[in-house]
Every structure is written in C-alpha cells, then in structure tokens.
Design a protein around this nucleic acid. Structure first.
Lengths: 240, 240
DNA sequence: GCAAAAGTGTTGGGCATACACCCATGA
DNA sequence: TCATGGGTGTATGCCCAACACTTTTGC
C-alpha cells in the first residue's frame, strides 16, 4: 500500500433527545476554553474518547452514565463521522488537547442517539450543572461538526419512529394527553396532523390505555391522560 | 481520565449485495494466509484500513473502485463495529499484520453496504479473480466478525427497502420481469407474496414501465419485461 | 394434450382523510 | 357569551388480502 495509513483517535458522541410537551430538545454541555488570549464559552455534545478494552456501545453507555443517575433504556448507534476536516477548527483541537493532555490529530466519532423522558427520575446528576436542554431551532453553532451530527440524528429518529411508533413513549411523560402525543408527532414529522384522525389512530392502539385522570386547572376542557402499556404491546406483537 | 485511551486502527468494510434472479448474494474475497506451519484459505469482506486525509465515505468508495470498473451508485454507511474481541482470532491478526506490514492491535471498522446490478457493465475488474459472489445461506465462516456484519447489513437493507422500494432497482437488471422483481422482494422479506396483488402493486407504480419485449425460449408463457423510469419517479416524488 | 409459469377480475375489510359538530372551561 | 382547545360522528375513497380462473408455451 502506497498511501500512509493514519492512526486516528476514536470517540463516541451522544445525541440525547428530550420532549417538554412543545418542542424537541437536545442535551448539550457547556464548554469553556481558551483561544490564544481570549477565552470562549460554547456548547458541545456529550462524548468521550473510547477506552481500551471497551466496546463502542459500552463507551456510549459510560458517557450517558456520567450524565444521568438512572439507566438509559434507548441508546442506539446511528452513524460514524470521520472527515479529516472535522478537526480543522484550532479552537476544537486546543480544547481537546487540553482536556485529555495529549496531542490530537484526526478524530473519528461514532454517534449514538438516545430518547429519554425529561422527568424527576431521569434527572441529571447533580454535578452536571453544565448540561442544558436546547430546543432544536435554537441550536446554532457547536463544537466540531456536532450541528450536522444532530441534523443526521433527527433524520434517524424520524426514520425509526415511522417504523416503530412506540419509540415516542420514551420521550413522553408516563401519563400524557392525546394532544401532547400529537404535538410530538408533529414536531418529529414537521407537519400538522388531523386531530380526529390522530384520536382514531390512538384508540386503535390497544397498548395506549386511557386513564380516568384528567388535566387540572386548564382554561378549557380538561384533557384525558393516557399511558403506554408495554405488556399489552409485547403481547400483541410477539405472536403470543 | 483514569482509564488509558486506546489508539486503534480504523478500517472500512463493504457489504456488496447482488441478485441473480433467484437469491441474494454478497461479494466476498478469497483470503490465503499462514497459521503457524499450515496455510489456510477462507473468505472475507472487501475492506481496507483508512488512509490519511481520506474521509470514511472516500475510503469505502476507494475499496469499491478497486473491485469494479464502473462507478458505484448506491453506497451507504450503516454501522460501525468496534468490540475489542473482534480481533481475538490470531489467524486474523497474523493475516492482517502480514498484509500491511504493521503491528496491529484493535481495529474499529465502519461498515458500508452497496446494492448493485450483476451485469456486464458492472463486471469485476479483471485482476480481481479472487472475488466470489456467495448466496446468503452459503455464508458460514468468514474472517473477523464479517458474518455478523453481513447479518446486520441484511437487516439494514430490509429496513431501507421498506422505506424506499425503489432501491431494489439497483439490484434488478435494466430490464426485468414481474416475477424477478417479486422473487427479489420475497428474498428480502423472507416470505411469499401474492402474485396477483404484486402485479397490481406494480401497475400502480407509474415509474415501472411495461415494455413491448418478452422473454424468449422459455418453456412456458413468456413474461413481459419492465424497466424502472427514474425520471418519472423523481417527477412524481419531488412535488413537480 | 399436459405441465408450468404468466397474467387477470372481483369482492370485502381496514385505514386515512376531511369536514362538521358538540363539550368543558376561564375570561 | 365568547374564545379556546378537547374530543366525537359520519361519509368517502384508497389500498390490500384472499380468492379462482384464463392464457401461452415447450415437450
């Protein structure tokens, strides 16, 4: 072989999606560093270089474990990014070399995506005050090529939800209204949906159980709460 | 960080699918090497370590370019594999170290899949006599974890074809019969399809044009040929 | 003629879309 | 009493699955 082979670093990055009832959000970490004289503040995806004897999935799980107290249910590898130009910004290089105390050349990153419920049980670890939930349209500039990684993650979520709609229940609260669920689908697909048709679709899902609880203190007719019954789902989708 | 960070090698591997009218096939390369005293022959996926200044997609394209004279239309990254145990077989390590004349530790591979038409224009380069088209059920043992890479590639193809059925036209000949197309779908989904319904589905696809040509010299009623009209397809699927 | 594979017609059910409508509540 | 958002009923049309049947061809 004539062309030299490169010895890159390999990292994992996690695109963590959450839903607040109105918009899709991504979990980002604050980053501070120095560029020459001046220091800067910006945002990045949670991630890490991989350790020896660690599988890719394990590395991603470790990154998530550093963020959340509870175990992550849905964590899924979706694409690797390895353009030589992704480490072209000296700000990124400088920050990373300072963080790991190593000379860094090229970095290939294996990206994961996760869908989580933003609630008390999935609270961020207390020492992670630098984490911020950011709504998709508010994401402008990030470290490395993280903006395009997020864009591709959104595409992937869309693809997977259209194949397995039950993935959205990872994002919704334990108890949710029909409108919340509909807004989430509208966010994901980027288009309005017919209210009536959505209700009919929901009532056809026997694993979405209507509850006898209703919203309180709202200035209009109170919406019914529903819950996702996983047992009913697996029963009706495994042949037994 | 307490745990040491690893400096792995990074490669690309390509799972190239072809269809001979009856079964799905994967393109494999013959591999010969020595294990202690004895030498061995087996099969592997086409692949390569990545070069410096080369993007992942470019590396995969290069590997394909070494196999085929014509340019590849559909080449798509689908998953990375990086378990430390994937290089646990000394036969694999020995073969690779001999091939690249380097000490090799851990290898992370970014896998691509390609759907191609097995015809004259997509002929293998003449110097690639070590390439063999292998039917899926005939694939038993391969180098590294290539068997499981192929299994995941098959899943991915299924997923993508179910979202965009026109991908199958990459596998079919320019002119194909309804039966060929149906058998391909049956191979992909692993289940028989109703002949009548399949014809109706085809006739609803305005981008599948019936031709005035028919099979010749067959011992039964000659089947009509069809072709995929990409222009009609893009016209009716881009809003204009 | 016979076997084998190509190709067609018909019907009933499920699901999506669209639109018009009623219900509950706070201002 | 009106505006707002939650939720329902009903009609229409498309796609799909499950059928049995006719056509063409080589032997």
């Amino acid at each position: 072989m004539q062309t030299p082979i490169v010895y890159p670093h390999v990292s994992v990055d996690c695109v963590v999606f959450g839903f607040d009832g109105i918009h899709l959000h991504v979990l980002l970490l604050k980053r501070t560093g120095k560029e020459g004289e001046t220091s800067f503040n910006d945002l990045k995806l949670p991630g890490s270089l991989i350790f020896s004897e660690e599988d890719l999935d394990e590395a991603a799980q470790r990154v998530m474990g550093e963020l959340f107290a509870k175990n992550i249910l849905y964590l899924h590898q979706f694409k690797s990014f390895g353009s030589p130009s992704r480490t072209s910004n000296p700000r990124d290089i400088g920050w990373l070399e300072n963080a790991v105390q190593q000379k860094i050349g090229r970095i290939i990153t294996v990206s994961y995506l996760s869908l989580i419920r933003i609630d008390d049980k999935m609270k961020l670890k207390s020492d992670n005050v630098q984490a911020v939930w950011t709504a998709l349209p508010d994401i402008k500039k990030l470290a490395f090529d993280h903006v395009s990684i997020i864009h591709e993650a959104v595409d992937e979520v869309r693809r997977f939800v259209s194949m397995d709609a039950t993935l959205v229940f990872n994002l919704l609260p334990k108890k949710f209204t029909a409108a919340q669920m509909r807004v989430l689908f509208e966010e994901l697909y980027g288009e309005k949906m017919d209210v009536r048709n959505f209700h009919k679709k929901m009532s056809r899902m026997d694993y979405v159980m209507p509850l006898d609880e209703f919203e309180q203190g709202v200035s209009h007719r109170a919406a019914r709460f529903y819950k996702f019954d996983k047992k009913t789902y697996t029963k009706s989708h495994t042949g037994f």
